[in-house]
Write a protein that binds this DNA or RNA. Structure first.
Length: 645
RNA sequence: GCCGUUGUAGCUCAGGGGUAGAGCACUUCCUUGGUAAGGAAGAGGUCAGGGGUUCAAUUCCCCUCAACGGCUCCA
């Protein structure tokens, strides 16, 4: 007998060799019907694998992540089986589960596989699923494994097997399909009740662009048809939040082929929104002791030779421009820090001056490959809400803490709860690729982690992700379609102070090297606005939205009064426009709602006579009559509450 | 940069070898209205750009550009 400990701490005595599935059955038949896989001593395995020793056991169902990935991993095999049925002779590479579904990388040879072929594959998948074929695990020797895929002529599997040790190779077979696989898998294909191929894309074998490009087929499956329908609805909803669509609809920004790709043009409403964000951040920074500087859009190539950027990124950047007579070379500014270093150097600095927090909304230009450009999130010209903090090594932790406070304040004000802080540290196996003393690194790495914990951030630590010049803390958020983007960043830098020979005079009257902290709470205004649009689905917070109030005269007869109301609201610093079109008020309301104007003020005979307005809030409806002044106070109070620290 | 898809009016899209259509938006007129679409008329397109096949190309073929979905990259 062996002892099985369940997550609730309860224990069961079962015969050696009992499977998780059998234990599930003994708990309840309903549970057994839903078990997809199990964790035995923390390792995810097939639910029907015999358990041989005392163990902790967790059963995975569709309701937990491990259950889902098991299901999707098995679904990848099912899709492969279906694809082979339609396209005999295709070569299969890898087919893992991903966050939402799974994919399989396939070498279709000469065959073109496109969206038009999805339906038949889905149909076959479901037919195969209905057969409830079991996923059968088999341990095979390396020799046998190689022999099987040599016979099948699948060089990708052979390459994978090549990298495996004899004795750790397993095959899984379901129906007529056998695949090299570590597992685990769901008990049988019958759990898969709905399948949808989502898209196809090119993907290099082993992610290396020197290798052959395979066809990656993305798909997703569900244990219920209705869940698939819900998921597809969710995708539709997400598409409506896409900042590229909303940006166009709301008149925020545009692109012009003639101006160049990746170069956004901010329209009046977008520019208004952006300037408001800048004003908001400028004010917050001012309170935190930042000073503002301004530097040009180009800088001598020598500046970037000194900073090291030329050597590291010069070939992959916009190439230098030269002066017509002298042939001097200038770079479009890819980053602001070298300029800021020179400002630091412009006068002697004392330890009493530190920290110096030098901020600039600096527009930078970076070459991005054409295939990489993406709305406002990935562009070639963008404005960073940049700042560089020059401080002593002892001040680093405190300063990083203050930056985190700033980021948290911003995220809170913008109602942005869903972000992850990624702490990027050195690769412990490769210490030589980093510059700066061990002592400083350790202090900085420890400092960043401590302060992130003190501030209560939800963090993940990534080893080896640090920049060569220092550790960093990045704020990651997701867009409407679930893609991850980096917004804010805090980076500690020992490199530039060295390269630019920055120094300050210490209390000991000796020269010391400052530490530099790069930080950008938004990251870039472009990317931030993009994420903000998707986050609030275009319905910006009242303090930020370009048009806070629209006045809707009931008929043209009241246009003069509407204009008067608008002017009066403007005098209270409220952004109000009025709709003077010859339309019925119902139409004007609809248009204002569609354009996401927060407040609508309906004015007609009664309002004109009483010097009042009838307020209506988007999504809520009629708020009743009130004086212009009390409406203005209401808006003002609402905004003040939003911006409270 | 690579693989795939797409490109028709300001927007969303239909069409299709015989030089274009709808809805919305826009302009004008009628209507002067009370909480999510009043009516009529009008204007607007080298069918992304270039080349080829053809009596004839927006339609078929090739190239370029751009956008989209990924991959690689990313200061």
């Amino acid at each position: 007998m062996i002892t099985i400990t369940l997550p609730d701490g309860s224990q069961r005595e079962v015969a050696k060799g009992t499977s998780a599935m059998e234990i599930a059955s003994s708990i309840s038949e309903g549970l057994a019907r839903n078990v997809l896989s199990a964790s035995v001593n923390g390792v995810v395995v097939d639910a029907n694998r015999p358990i041989e020793t005392n163990a902790t056991l967790k059963l995975h169902t569709w309701n937990d992540e491990d259950g889902k990935s098991t299901m999707w991993h098995s679904s990848a095999h099912l899709m492969a089986e279906a694809l082979e049925a339609h396209y005999p002779g295709i070569k299969l590479a890898i087919g893992p589960p991903i966050e939402n579904g799974f994919y399989y990388d396939v070498d279709f040879g000469e065959v073109e596989f496109s969206q038009a072929d999805f339906a038949k594959v889905e149909k076959t998948m479901l037919e195969l699923a209905r057969q409830k074929n079991e996923y059968i695990r088999k341990e095979v020797s390396k020799q046998d494994a190689l022999a099987y895929f040599t016979e099948k002529g699948d060089q990708y599997k052979l390459e994978l097997i090549d990298g495996l040790n004899d004795g750790e190779i397993t095959f899984y077979t379901q129906g007529n399909f056998t695949d090299l696989c570590r597992g685990p898998h769901i008990p049988n294909t019958g759990f898969i009740k709905a399948a949808k191929l989502l898209n196809v894309a090119g993907a290099y074998w082993r992610g290396d662009e020197k290798n052959k490009m395979l066809t990656r087929v993305y798909a997703i499956t569900f244990p219920k048809q209705s869940e698939l329908e819900d998921y597809l609805k969710l995708l539709e909803e997400a598409k409506k939040r896409d900042h590229r669509k909303l940006g166009k609809e709301l008149g925020l920004f545009t692109f012009s082929q003639k101006v160049g790709s990746g170069l956004p043009l901010w329209l009046p409403k977008g520019a208004d929104l952006r300037m408001r964000l800048v004003a908001f951040l400028t004010q917050a920074q001012k309170k935190m002791g930042y000073v503002q500087v301004i530097t040009p859009h180009i800088g001598s190539k020598e500046l970037y030779v000194t900073s090291g950027h030329w050597e590291k990124y010069g070939k992959d950047s916009f190439q230098p421009i030269s002066t017509p007579q002298e042939g001097e070379l200038y770079m479009l500014k890819p980053m602001n820090c070298p300029h800021h270093c020179e400002i630091f150097k412009s006068e002697p600095r004392s330890y009493r001056d530190l920290p110096i927090r030098m901020a600039e909304f600096g527009t930078v230009y970076r070459y991005e490959q054409t295939g990489e450009l993406h709305g406002l999130t990935r562009v070639r010209g963008f404005t960073q809400d940049d700042a560089h903090i020059f401080c002593t090594a002892d001040q680093v932790k405190h300063e990083v803490g203050k930056v985190i406070d700033l980021v948290l304040y911003i995220f809170k004000t913008l109602d942005f709860p869903d972000f992850l802080a990624q702490v990027s540290l050195r690769d412990p196996n490769n210490p030589s690729k980093y510059i700066g003393s061990d002592e400083n690194w350790e202090k900085a790495e420890r400092g960043i982690q401590e302060v992130a914990n003190e501030k209560g951030l939800k963090t993940v630590v990534e080893y080896g992700e640090a920049a060569f010049y220092g550790p960093k803390l990045d704020f990651m958020v997701r867009d409407a379609i679930g893609r991850k983007w980096q917004l804010g960043t805090v980076q500690i830098d020992y490199n530039l102070p060295e390269r630019f020979e920055l120094e300050y005079t210490g209390a000991d009257n000796a020269k010391h090297r400052p530490v530099m902290i790069h930080r950008a709470p938004f990251g870039s205004l472009e990317r931030f606005v993009a994420i903000l649009i998707e986050h609030c689905a275009g319905q910006f917070p009242l303090w930020l939205t370009p048009e806070q109030v629209r006045i809707l005269p009931v008929s043209e007869k009241y246009n003069d009064y509407a204009r008067k109301v608008a002017t009066e609201l403007n005098s209270y610093d409220i952004r109000a426009l009025f709709d003077e079109r010859n339309e019925k008020v119902g139409k004007k309301i609809r248009d204002a709602e569609v354009e996401k104007v927060t407040y609508m003020l309906i004015v007609g005979e009664e309002e004109q006579a009483g010097n009042t307005v009838s307020a209506r809030k988007k999504g809520e409806g009629d708020l009743g009559k009130m004086s212009i002044e009390s409406f203005a106070q209401k808006v003002d109070a609402e905004i003040k509450a939003m911006l409270a620290e």
